[in-house]
Design a protein around this nucleic acid. Structure first.
Length: 111
DNA sequence: GGATTGACGTGTC
DNA sequence: AGACACGCCAATC
């Protein structure tokens, strides 16, 4: 019995180090479903809606843009949380995104 | 129950 | 290199 796709996503997101961020596609790719990044987004939707203990604010799109801020309790909380962790946000986008990027593939193994 | 949408990304032109 | 097309599949209408 393997973990469900959603569960894996939750697991990875929970494992994102503080002050680090990752992208939906990176998670999807880590799970072997590179083209199913949207599913990660759906999982995150559940995460914020049903399972708010998931730090979904550390997950952004490939451009480092805070696309999911609107789904938070307050659309400013996402930016606030990220800035609180030492990440700078400019125009709803992460500054120096690459430096804060955390690749699950190089840190996690489900095998 | 078919059609549309969506926290995205890759591939192609 | 920028723009467009497609895939993914769950949830919603």
């Amino acid at each position: 019995m393997e973990l469900d796709f959603y569960d894996k996503v939750y697991d990875i997101v929970c494992l994102i180090p503080k002050g680090k961020v990752t992208s939906y596609g990176a998670i999807a790719k880590a799970l072997g479903v590179t083209r199913s990044a949207r599913m990660v987004g759906k999982a995150m939707n559940n995460a914020t809606t049903i399972t708010p203990n998931i730090p979904a604010h550390r997950v952004v799109n490939r451009n480092g843009l805070l696309t999911g801020k609107m789904h938070f309790k307050t659309h400013t909380q996402m930016q606030e949380l990220l800035e609180k962790e030492g990440i700078t946000i400019k125009n709803d986008k992460i500054v120096n995104f690459k430096a804060h990027f955390w690749d699950p593939l190089t840190n996690i193994s489900f095998d």
